[in-house]
Simulated assay, not measured.
Amino acid sequence: MRALLVVNPAATTTSARTRDVLTHALASDLKLEVATTESRGHARELARLAAESGEIELVIALGGDGTVNEIVNGLLHEGPDPDRLPRLAVVPGGSTNVFARALGLPNHAVEATGALLDALQQGSERTVGLGVASGAPGTDDAGVPPRWFTFCAGFGFDAGVVGRVEQQRERGKRSTHALYIRQVVRSFLQEQHRRGGTITLERPGAEPVEELVMSIVCNTSPWTYLGNRPVYATPAASFDTALDVLGLSRLTPAALSRYATQLLTSSPERGPHGKHAITLHDQTDFTLHSQVPLPFQMDGDHLGVRKSVSFTGVRRALRVIV
């Protein structure tokens, strides 16, 4: 099998020596080409070229969720076509690795490489659904091009926290759970719409859901991990269905404390719930509108501010080796 290994040299949990060992292990079973990313967006371009070549059968991501997201967007540049496009495989090298772990892969690069080689030998793969977001038609964001996401997107408070964390990382801070918690507190203290949000969720054939402070859109579950603890925002979300949504309409100190506790104690059977929480399951098409520009993130990558975002859940979008 001819494969392309896309290596992110800035991956936070792998060293250059480890990456060399993994590359040699993969090259022993595959006709392997190796490409190292040089800048943001490079992984996407490499994957796009691999998909267009018609010669690459497998693209392997060695990096974190951001690297995986870029590769998925490169592979799906012309849209989903599981029977034609190269398969995707992931060797986790980031700080959280939500997509890889949601697929059931080990969170250790060496162990994941061994699992990948076993899966290739056994011909084990699955076709997963993904989400895609774009600027809503008829709005100021209409020209924003579509972008795929593998496990989650956030609009509002959640995305603001992600943006703050990115700013701290650009200043040299390490991506730790303590860093995230500090940014949650700081975002909360500066949130102007805690008691009545500005987001409206619209979907065909249903009444709009208004005054949301934040919206989390999930393509799978868990939503994220705190160390080895999975956190379930929308427990019913699955790679086999469309998209799930968690919306919160109030973030007072009491509400924040309640929902934070529910997230920390969440399980595959129960996530956040209550008077000011709404959950929607298996949604194919919907739009989030805000009265004011709000932060927006996809797969943990802060994408600036938006006023309107349209979402589509696409079943059977891409084949993945597992």
Rank of each mutant, 00 (worst) to 15 (best):
M1I: 12
M1Y: 11
R2Q: 09
A3Q: 06
A3V: 12
L4Q: 02
V7N: 02
V7E: 02
P9M: 03
T12N: 01
T14P: 01
R19C: 11
D20M: 01
D20P: 00
T23Y: 03
S28L: 02
S28H: 06
D29T: 05
E33T: 12
T37V: 07
A43N: 04
A43C: 07
E45H: 09
L46V: 09
L46E: 09
A47S: 10
A51H: 12
S53I: 11
I60Y: 03
A61V: 08
G64P: 08
D65A: 10
G66I: 11
T67E: 12
T67V: 12
T67M: 10
E70Y: 06
N73D: 11
L76F: 10
H77A: 15
P82M: 05
A89E: 06
V90I: 15
T96C: 13
T96S: 14
N97M: 10
N97V: 14
A100V: 11
R101F: 14
G104W: 13
L105I: 09
P106I: 15
N107H: 14
H108G: 06
E111K: 12
T113H: 02
A115F: 05
L117Q: 11
A119P: 06
L120Q: 01
Q121D: 11
E125G: 03
R126H: 03
G129I: 09
L130H: 13
G131Y: 07
A133Y: 03
A133F: 09
S134M: 12
A136L: 03
D140A: 15
V144Q: 00
F149P: 01
F155N: 01
F155W: 04
V161Y: 07
V161G: 06
V165E: 04
V165T: 11
E166A: 14
E166Q: 14
S175L: 06
A178K: 03
R182W: 10
R186N: 05
R186G: 04
L189F: 13
Q190M: 10
Q190L: 13
R195Q: 14
G196A: 13
P204Q: 15
A206N: 09
V209R: 09
E210Y: 00
L212S: 07
S221D: 07
T224Y: 01
Y225Q: 06
G227A: 05
R229V: 13
P230I: 09
P235A: 02
A236M: 04
D240V: 02
D240G: 02
T241R: 15
D244C: 15
G247M: 13
L251Y: 14
A254T: 15
R258T: 15
T261F: 12
T261P: 00
T261L: 15
L263R: 05
T265G: 07
S266L: 11
S267P: 13
E269M: 08
R270H: 14
G271F: 11
G274L: 05
Q283P: 10
D285Y: 15
F286G: 08
H289M: 07
S290E: 07
S290Q: 06
P295S: 02
D299P: 08
D301M: 01
S310W: 02
R316W: 00
R316K: 15
A317G: 09
A317S: 13
V320Y: 10
V320L: 13
